[in-house]
Design a protein around this nucleic acid. Structure first.
Lengths: 201, 201
DNA sequence: ACTATCAAATTGACGGCGTCAATATGAGTT
DNA sequence: AACTCATATTGACGCCGTCAATTTGATAGT
């Protein structure tokens, strides 16, 4: 547990992280500047360097936390899943789609390899955890598959991510469904289920 | 045909566009600054405003041109295609994948809705052309399909784009194939072909 | 209780950016 | 030869990230 007010300010690192997340949700990643975060936290523009080396380190910490959230969301979904052989599609698909539509700016940050440090051990660790969990579920559901598990995992994740990325970039909103945006989501998951017969059974 | 040296400088707009494209390929979109482009063109930092209102207008022009290139590439591929009912998968898939791997920074720019003007008429026109061409091919190949044509188009494009976006962001290079990167590409296209039996035939 | 220490915070500077306003230039027209 | 007006230059403003020098103040050692 962090001290209430340990030294000059208090646990500034926690405050900086929270303010950065608020700015991210409100203004997008461009709004998350060292100086803006410092302003929100009520400290000088030079203070954050003691806790985050630079902007990339701050954004990396934000991204790492979001992957943790997604990992937990998937784990929760898996324990509550009916357990059909296609359950992983619903669980992973819904986890990613709901997260993306709820926190678009957080989701987009996850794939900004130019802004975050992909070599960061904590970040790459949780990214690997999510990916390996997906592969594990595919292996459980499809013990004999025509394509290797990595290919199925990459194809699935590519489709979900590509769809989210284009939707959140405002790319084909006008060409997308005119209603809630959800029927198309479900259709994509249903469509991917057609690949389940890849089982050599 | 543009005049050789029409006024103060010559047709600066053309030069600005070309230098901007060079900078994009070399340094990524962050390297395409108004001032850097002006430097490369040998003019002052205030000169470009007479030809591109602001940075977003310049980047929009770059993106529009790239979509034109992709559109032409697809059209070339279609005329040369064998014409099988799955030909559109190969043609569109290869056009996008080859463009993305050859010009990663150009490809990434296309989906930066925060940097380009999606409402620009010229840009949205060519984007619609590419999308409608895809839908048209799907309609030709799959006259009776279980899902509506838009859903198939979105699913296909999502998978290709998601894969490219993650690859080009350096996201799962370590987890991807260790060889050339191409076997995985082909596997994804093959995998999507499994959806062709969606034909109610 | 006093002082030394040292992480944490402040301040100020530097260069780069986008953008805007004021000014200068010069080719084509009258 | 003078005018016009698009084009180009210059300089400014307020952001930004980052760094160096300095100050602050909680804590540990005497």
């Amino acid at each position: 547990m962090p001290k209430e007010k340990s030294f000059h300010h208090g646990d500034l690192k926690r405050v900086l992280f929270e303010k950065a997340l608020e700015l991210l949700d409100r203004d997008g990643v461009d709004g998350v500047t060292i100086r803006a975060v410092a302003r929100e936290a009520g400290v000088s523009h030079g203070a954050p360097v003691n806790h985050y080396r630079d902007r990339k380190a701050l954004l990396t910490a934000l991204a790492q936390r979001q992957f943790e959230t997604i990992l937990n969301s998937v784990e929760d979904g898996l324990t509550a899943a009916p357990g059909g052989s296609n359950a992983w599609i619903e669980v992973f698909g819904k986890a990613l789609l709901e997260f993306g539509f709820k926190y678009p700016h957080r989701y987009k940050l996850l794939w900004r390899g130019d802004l975050i440090d992909l070599k960061d051990p904590d970040l790459s660790k949780v990214m690997d955890q999510v990916y390996l969990q997906l592969c594990g579920q595919i292996e459980l559901a499809m013990p004999q598959v025509e394509f290797d598990r990595d290919t199925v995992a990459v194809a699935f994740w590519s489709m979900i991510h590509g769809y989210l990325d284009m939707r959140l970039s405002g790319m084909f909103v006008p060409l997308d469904d005119k209603v809630t945006g959800r029927p198309r989501d479900a259709a994509l998951l249903d469509l991917f289920k057609m690949l389940a017969p890849l089982n050599r059974s």
